[in-house]
Design a protein around this nucleic acid. Structure first.
Lengths: 229, 229
DNA sequence: TTTTACGAGTGTAAAAAAAACACTTTACAA
DNA sequence: TTGTAAAGTGTTTTTTTTACACTCGTAAAA
């Protein structure tokens, strides 16, 4: 009886596809790869691979990303499982989408796959299968996340200016923010530490550098906040 | 090459398990079933079954629920995919969890499976496998949902009193609310229509009955709101 | 050497939203 | 007629959010 229940059931291929968000001076970007195998050879796609019998999904997502790009990302989170019957023309395949956050400048040297490329969100090409839908869902999730938890630790360099953090929020929320209100709000969370150093890349006067107070940052990640701005 | 990519990959069993939330006078409940097959025969479990080759996950979730309980639910939503390698002792199985919302009184007659039973959240038994973890995640999701979108259409009878709606929010958020503030807030969304009828079940004076203005309700589901209360 | 240009930094007042709060009404039952 | 139990109803206070403009410091250009 037990064996029947299980043995009657269909076994199915499981893909894991990841939306890799990166951030640099120019804004928020996603990492795409040019497919080097059929079907859809030469088309752009998310980073993806198949789940193995002996690993869980989180492990697969990390393994695939590492293998395809060399990147060891800091933050990955499961997004949604896509299951349309004909989503993959070759064979019935479900795909569990993950999204990841990384600081582009920091990890650029790790990138080993030359067919991988960063695209800003508005200039990204059409993707294979249902990957565009996955990206949309990831953007929506990232937006919600940015409003309810601190974000940036994974996307910014270890030291960053207030304007970089503001720009990050602006690219995620796709909306200009008032700089005074932004600073006041961020400071009210107590997750930043202002250093005595300044960054003079972007201005002659120089801008204070900040780091995250990781303890308070992690507290806020757990408890959440209301970033209504 | 193409065939290789796919044919090297492992195929895996996919379960679909559903957390069914129901609401009645006594509060928020979940529907559990006593397993009638091994392993874990006789233990309590979520409603579950296996995904078939020719259906997508949403379809499977609906089919399984209908088959096990007779219930035709109004609202189902994918929650998360659980993938620990040894989560099912019989065989490697992934499970995609769904959660559903239904009005208990309305659908009680549909319930055909006598081993299915409603439990209030705090009195629910230990469940098999990782099902308790699924329930926790579903409760957290439902809470977030209640704060960002109207909820209740699927859980309440067609006509309901303001106190029933408040009680629903209170059981989801697990927190007492002030009745005047609640009414003011709900009214500000404009999703309710007050009828001339009164319900005298709970009080001698009788309480006004309301219905949802489905058009405005659906608008608010789409645009979301901030129910900070 | 003075002027210009550019981003950095800073605080307050007005408006909106949320929270706190208590008494009256109704109708049935005792 | 009196007691009881739930329904209904607004205002004030507090908190949060928004709007808004000038000075500072430095490097480059005049």
């Amino acid at each position: 009886m037990a064996l029947n229940r299980y043995s009657n059931a269909d076994k199915i291929l499981l893909a894991v596809d990841s939306i890799i968000f990166g951030f640099d001076k120019a804004g928020l970007k996603i990492l795409l790869i040019k497919r080097d195998f059929e079907p859809e050879l030469g088309k752009w796609s998310l980073m993806g691979g198949f789940l193995k019998e002996d690993e869980n999904l989180d492990e697969a997502a990390i393994r695939i990303l590492q293998h395809l790009t060399g990147l060891r990302t800091i933050y990955m989170e499961q997004l949604y499982t896509f299951s349309k019957v004909d989503r993959d023309p070759v064979e019935r395949t479900l795909s569990v989408a993950y999204y990841a956050l990384i600081d582009i400048a920091m990890h650029d040297k790790e990138l080993i796959n030359t067919s991988a490329q960063w695209f800003s969100l508005d200039k990204a090409p059409h993707l294979i299968f249902d990957h565009n839908q996955m990206v949309e869902k990831a953007i929506a999730r990232l937006k919600r996340r940015a409003l309810s938890k601190p974000i940036g630790f994974e996307l910014l360099p270890p030291k960053f200016t207030m304007r970089q953090l503001q720009k990050l929020y602006e690219s995620i929320l796709d909306k200009k923010l008032d700089k005074r209100n932004f600073i006041n709000k961020i400071n009210s969370f107590g997750i930043l530490v202002r250093l005595d150093e300044k960054d003079t890349n972007a201005s002659k006067k120089g801008a204070y550098l900040y780091t995250f107070d990781k303890v308070k940052y992690d507290e806020k990640v757990l408890e959440g906040f209301n970033f209504k701005i």
